[in-house]
């Protein structure tokens, strides 16, 4: 459907359709973020022997996040006097926009995808890199040494972990011979999920993805107790909410990407289960992957900055390179694919 629209002549109606689709999708993602935050708090509570939010919106606290967001939106808009005003205002926008742009290329089911790019995987990596500039701008514009330190840490971490992330993804690109995410899913229909063929790449990719998302073992860019929340110390209200939103939208996108690359996207695990629609399978896998992310948050301690950098460059990168080499050998010698 999107393809037809893209080739039709431009008109206000056309623009309106695209606008409405993007808006609808934005609200779907906002809905996801709302309940992802609630789920995170619930899972953390469960793991720590607490109850978690349980007052607003029935027994499960279903309206807790909605109330939190409302509170953030009506808060006074504070811009510190000594900050770099234009950059302070534009930084959250630059940090959030790529997070939403990235989701366009992810195939949720056979038909539900906004842009079928033949460089899909690379597109994801490239666009998500723009967020780093937003982070760095926020850190800089705040004119606060904790913010600047946090921003520098975040940037160094993002840049370093992007490399093992790409290298781990390369193993899969080698096997499928395509960077198109649709082709990658379809290749798994015949050969089985790529987590079976690329277990090493999966481990490297997952760790690097956690680092890209600033999830817990790697959240030292915004470590509350050493850096007073890092690059968004000076932010409050809806500007701060935009940073949080960007983070959770990336979590959405990254979980979806992991499913597409390693868990066969919308495909059922066995052939005889294929009467259940793809969207359901995607949702189930998605729930499992995000649950694992929460689980890690509850159980891992934070790393030290020097360990973090060494881990990326001295362990993950060589392992990923060895994996590429091995994959190429397997592909050439055994001719499986």
């Amino acid at each position: 459907m999107v393809q037809d629209l893209l080739h039709s002549s431009p008109s206000l109606l056309n623009f309106g359709i695209f606008f409405a689709m993007a808006l609808a999708f934005l609200f779907v993602i906002l809905g996801f973020v709302t309940y992802a935050i609630l789920a995170e708090r619930k899972v953390l509570g469960f793991m720590q022997g607490r109850i978690g939010p349980n007052h607003l919106g029935g027994r499960w606290g279903l309206l807790q996040t909605v109330a939190d967001v409302l509170k953030l939106l009506v808060k006074e808009d504070l811009i510190p006097k000594a900050s770099d005003r234009p950059m302070f205002i534009i930084a959250p926008v630059i940090a959030f926009a790529p997070a939403f742009v990235v989701v366009a290329t992810i195939p949720f089911t056979e038909n539900l995808q906004f842009a079928d790019l033949n460089v899909g995987l690379l597109y994801y990596i490239a666009i998500s890199g723009i967020t780093i500039i937003g982070t760095l701008m926020a850190a800089w514009a705040s004119n606060n040494k904790y913010s600047l330190l946090g921003g520098m840490r975040a940037t160094a971490q993002m840049v370093s972990y992007e490399i093992p992330l790409v290298m781990a993804g390369l193993g899969i690109v080698l096997l499928t011979g395509s960077m198109n995410l649709n082709d990658i899913v379809l290749a798994q229909q015949e050969s089985g999920w790529f987590i079976l063929w690329q277990p090493v790449a999966f481990v490297v990719f997952f760790i690097a993805a956690m680092a890209e998302l600033y999830r817990v073992p790697f959240d030292l860019a915004e470590a509350e107790n050493e850096l007073v929340a890092g690059f968004h110390t000076e932010y409050s209200g809806f500007r701060w909410a935009m940073f949080m939103l960007a983070e959770y939208v990336y979590m959405f996108a990254m979980s979806a990407l992991i499913i597409v690359l390693f868990f066969g996207g919308w495909l059922p695990p066995f052939e005889f289960l294929s009467f259940i629609p793809g969207a359901v399978w995607f949702g189930l896998k998605f729930a499992v992957v995000t649950y694992v992310l929460y689980w890690f948050r509850a159980t891992f301690p934070r790393m030290r900055p020097d360990q973090l950098m060494e881990f990326a460059w001295k362990i993950l990168l060589p392992v990923a390179l060895a994996n590429i080499f091995l994959t190429a050998l397997l592909k050439e010698l055994l001719n499986i694919f």
């Binding site: 690379l122 597109y123 990596i125």
Partner: peptide, 10 residues
């Protein structure tokens, strides 16, 4: 994509 990755990214 390479332009974004190299110029605006790196």
């Amino acid at each position: 994509v390479v332009q974004i990755l190299v110029y605006s990214g790196a």
